[in-house]
Amino acid sequence: MVQRGSKVRILRPESYWFQDVGTVASVDQSGIKYPVIVRFEKVNYSGINTNNFAEDELVEVEA
């Protein structure tokens, strides 16, 4: 279970941040499909630095 402030590695192959490390900004408990919002240092092609992920697409590298 990841929690706010954890450092996580992204396992979603189609993601711009695949294999990159980001910080968990928040975790939604309402039961949505992609409840974990992760914030990154670098921006993607659209200038965005956050994205939603499912918990099984993340691996915690640092608490």
Rank of each mutant, 00 (worst) to 15 (best):
M1Y: 11
V2E: 00
V2R: 06
Q3A: 10
Q3C: 12
Q3I: 10
R4S: 10
R4M: 11
R4W: 05
R4N: 06
G5F: 03
G5S: 02
K7W: 07
K7P: 01
V8H: 04
V8E: 00
R9I: 08
I10S: 00
I10G: 01
L11C: 10
L11N: 04
L11S: 03
R12P: 06
P13D: 03
P13C: 11
E14A: 10
E14R: 09
S15R: 02
S15E: 03
Y16A: 01
W17I: 03
W17Q: 00
F18C: 06
F18H: 05
F18N: 01
Q19W: 11
Q19N: 14
D20K: 09
G22Q: 05
T23C: 12
T23Y: 09
T23L: 07
V24M: 01
V24T: 03
S26D: 14
V27T: 05
D28K: 05
D28W: 05
D28F: 06
Q29H: 13
Q29I: 11
Q29F: 12
S30D: 05
G31V: 08
G31T: 06
G31W: 08
K33M: 11
Y34S: 04
Y34V: 03
P35E: 07
P35M: 11
P35A: 09
P35K: 11
V36T: 00
V36M: 04
V36K: 00
V38N: 00
V38Q: 00
R39V: 14
R39W: 13
F40V: 00
E41I: 09
K42R: 14
K42V: 07
K42N: 10
V43A: 14
N44G: 05
Y45H: 15
Y45T: 14
S46W: 15
S46P: 03
S46A: 15
S46H: 14
G47M: 03
G47R: 01
I48L: 13
I48C: 15
I48P: 04
I48F: 11
T50K: 06
T50W: 15
N51E: 15
N51K: 05
N51M: 15
F53H: 01
F53Q: 00
F53A: 00
A54I: 03
A54F: 04
A54M: 08
A54K: 08
E55Q: 13
E55I: 14
E55F: 15
E55A: 13
E55S: 09
D56W: 15
D56G: 06
D56L: 06
E57P: 04
L58Q: 00
L58A: 01
V59L: 12
E60P: 13
E60Y: 10
E60D: 05
V61T: 05
E62L: 10
A63E: 12
